[in-house]
Design a protein around this nucleic acid. Sequence first.
RNA 1: GCGGGAGUGACAGAGUGGUCAAAUGUGCUGGCUUGAGGUGCCAGUCCCUUAGUGGGUGCGCAGGUUCGAAUCCUGUCUCUCGCACCA
Length: 825
Amino acid sequence: MKELKEIELKWQKKWEKDKLFVAKEKGKKCYVLEMFPYPSGLGLHLGHTFNYSIGDAYARFKRARGFNVLYPMGYDAFGLPAENAAIKEKIHPKEYTEKSIKNFIFQQKRLGISYDWNKLIKTCDPEYYKWNQWLFLKFFENGLAYRAKAPVNWCGHCGTVLANEQVEDGECWRCHSKVEIKQLEQWFLKITKYADELLKDISGLNWNEKIKIMQKNWIGRSDGIEIDFKLKNSEDKLKVFTTRPDTLWGVTFVVMAPENPKVFDLVRGTKYENEIKKFTNKVVIDEKYERAVEDKEKEGLFTGRYAINPVNNQEVPIYIANFVLLEYGTGAVMAVPAHDQRDFEFARKYKIPVKVVIKPKEYELDAEKMMKAYVDMGIVINSDKIFNGMNNFDAIKEIIKYLEKKKFGKRTINYKLRDWLISRQRYWGTPIPIIYCDKCGILPAEIPVLLPDDVKFSGEGNPLANHEKFHKVECTKCGGDARRETDTMDTFFDSSWYFLRFIDNKNEKKIFDAKKIEKWMPVDQYIGGAEHAVLHLLYARFFVKAMRDIGLLEIDEPFINLFNQGMINKNGMRMSKSKGNVIDPMETIEKYGADTLRTYLLFMGDPGKNREWDDKGIEGVYRFLKKIYSFKNKIKPRLNIKDKILESKLNQIIKEITVDMDEFKFNLAINRLMQLTNFMHTQKENISAKVFDDSLKKILIMLSCFAPHISEELFENGYVSVAEWPKADEKKIDKKLEDDEEQIEKLIDDINNVAKIVKEKNKDIKKCFVYVLPKELKIYNDSIEDISRRTSFEIKIFSVADKDKHDPEKKSSKAKIGKPALYLE
RNA sequence: GCGGGAGUGACAGAGUGGUCAAAUGUGCUGGCUUGAGGUGCCAGUCCCUUAGUGGGUGCGCAGGUUCGAAUCCUGUCUCUCGCACCA
């Protein structure tokens, strides 16, 4: 359809001109938000398009339902690709990004997404990132941002450090090159302070279970106890963390992380010192990532020292080993080889005794012959007589009480979550607003700290570090020579609060107006891919809690409802350039129009699941829209015999679609629209003009969530985009009527079939009557005309009472009630 | 190993206790439209049987609950995704 493009462009212009989608001040609010995109130079991909099709369908639905919808769009515009483009193509990141954003906006408008464009934000705009800096300083003031030397993940390819969340299998999440470990002074945000709250509040979120569990795992809470082991020949103590105090009597050695600073104290001046240092270097530097693999062979060294188990005063040797992590717990563990697989492997290798203290109910364990650790539930044995015989699950609680009472240890909770490292040694990001003075120390810089434009992109190092004017500053306190921080912030900082800035994006004086935040937050519906399960979604939750504690807002969670869309595959695989199976949304729009693409994306299956793109599938949707469009050419009406049926069906689907929309079952909603449209199409001559038009109007309002342009074109009462959602009239839903209709359809089928055969077999037959013996005369009577017309046979009716008058044996076959019978002349 | 999700017709994908041989789309077959293997329309598309009717099998596999299951329970297999030496 040639005119399709014209239609779409026409309405897009009109919507913009009439500011149709600007959020209002009044009415019940609904904040609909898609995860804002990184504006890559390649333009929208199908995943974006799908994401926005979902959001727009939902936003349009909510608007039609009378909500005051805030539906903004912005760009996560800082980041590496722009900088890489700068190095490669000699184009300034700013220029590259601006160009990409322009293209994104153009394409999004071409899709007809109903954003409130007044709310636009770009994170690379100083008007945005100066508030990043402001926030950072607030965090700094409140002890939530701190600088520390720590082993950090270094990606040589990207030339920057990475957060733990950005390391996947020891590789950079972006470029997939191997990550190394470096000791560097870096800025951290204290997300661990909120570990418990972040974990606890997950239960109140209406999110996909998978994402919730991923976050829970990432935070990784374990409840246990820290136990003090005295050191032999020393006043010092060694703390270990365990969740299994029930195995305390089975401890046969203690293991420390090699890089634990205490190790050096233990071995200083002994014959073990050199070996230990060598081993530590090997493990910590060379094998940082290989080390963290389960089947990596356990390796270790004896330190020459002993620890004393507080509960039985037994002396046990202290080892260091590659499988113990410094960052977790106390960096030292009590080893119970009988009941922990790692300890078991280690003990067997280094010939350390194994002592069984938990026994399965059904059989005995032999410490000498065991092939693996026994880690299941069981009965406590060989321990203190107070606990022997207890179920070990109960014993854990009792032993913790006992240890606390005896002051041997303290109940502790440990988390896997680490603080968030936000320093990046790159140019295209928010400068960290800090200066360093040799005399005065670390000081906040005056903000905004603007990114200088005149930088050179050599591809080596951080351009800001080579920009003298930028990093040479006066100390704000003493006026002496000082150095400005040249690191920029992780771009996840930008995206951790952007949803707040949308609400008050033009505020020059404040980060946002708290009253407006109170009005609009939390986001009612957030929509995005599952790839941000632990990155963005965790950071944003942390920011909101931190900002709450600083007094900037009053909510606890940013996103109550989250919808994760699935991925779209082609030929059973993820779309990728290398596989050559990429569907380009803009090409598809050229061919079929935005309406078709959007409707197909939502029709192809459950939007929450992965689905398969089918070139033929989109054809079907295209045909459906064309069919609807054909309603524009008025059919000369017409009978009204199907009016009631149509009304019944219509009201039924209004009811159903209203539910579907709230549950993101867009595929079902579209399906229902198709069914009804098909009915109207086949029955168009049997429906009165009034009912037909009225039904079409309501269908268009619902359809406009998916195919807004074509719906506008056909709608004749103002803008369909702001029309009120139809209400289902329960009174008109008549299942009985629809059932009867089905029966009539069957009847017509039957008659046609019979007649066809009769014709074939008896060509000399002139007239052919069909006698119908109805169950309920009334319905059939009403439909006789219809049946007669649609079968081109003369129809006669017999009521049940007349059945006997009719003589079926005469000429026709056996007549059954409700079935047609033939009568030939 | 732990944890999520999923297994339905030629394919994709609906359907979560009866109204299901199972929506819708695609594919395939036949008919009409047409200059046309293009568009559009109509019909058919598990198996057997019939002029119409009718009957049988069927929703990964094996059991169970129920008057009745694709739908609930148990076991089992397969696929997929996330986390993974966290003590």
